[in-house]
Amino acid sequence: MTDLQFLTWTRGPGLDLAVAVFLLGVLWRLIEIYTLGRKKDLAAPRHAPGASGLHTVFRRSLPPPGMLKRSPVSYIGGYVFHIGLAIIVFLGAPHVLLIKNLVGVSWPTLPSQFIGLTAVVTMAAMVLMLADRINKPVKRFLSTFEDWFTWAVTFLPVLTGWMATQHLLLPYTQMLALHILSAEILLVVLPFSKLFHGFTLFGSRWYNGRVNAHKGVPV
């Protein structure tokens, strides 16, 4: 298999498979999780401003008072790499084009140098987060194989994408193919790992907000 064939495979059958597994997994897991049911709260509700499921969905995107100081690396590193990933995925020209091809909508993009810079910053934040996971007793204690694995699976597409555009290590064609392949692995792994929090965190925040809003507590 030549590198161009490899690239064409990743762009063709590989992508097809990855998207299929991703969709299959996402639907299966979402239904599996959210049809487990829950009891209606029979206590007379108390209403309070700012207390609702939706409020919590948004509010939890900001650190609760005092937490930023207690865990600056988690928050700053977390913000940088999540926002970085979002910028790269949703504002990088080739990615927007892919989205356009897959779902038919598109929007303006950012210059490739900016995306490149974002990738560097994102990777730096991710390495910092990894170091934090190794260093901090609590994080190290909680970490399982899955945590290291999902870190790598998230890091690799950024690294290979950046290396491809910077012409590092391997010829562009091979790097691009590896980049697409790594992104496909990410798609496949996502529904079956903690990366699924990208979907379930909305549900979780909503439930938490809802349950506590019933008692009049904005959480």
């Binding site: 064409t8 063709g12 992508l15 097809d16 080739p94 990615h95 084009l97 356009k100 091809n101 897959l102």
Partner: peptide, 9 residues
């Protein structure tokens, strides 16, 4: 385009 799927899904 190179970043577009080579085949329709």
């Amino acid at each position: 385009a190179l970043s577009a799927p080579a085949d329709p899904l």
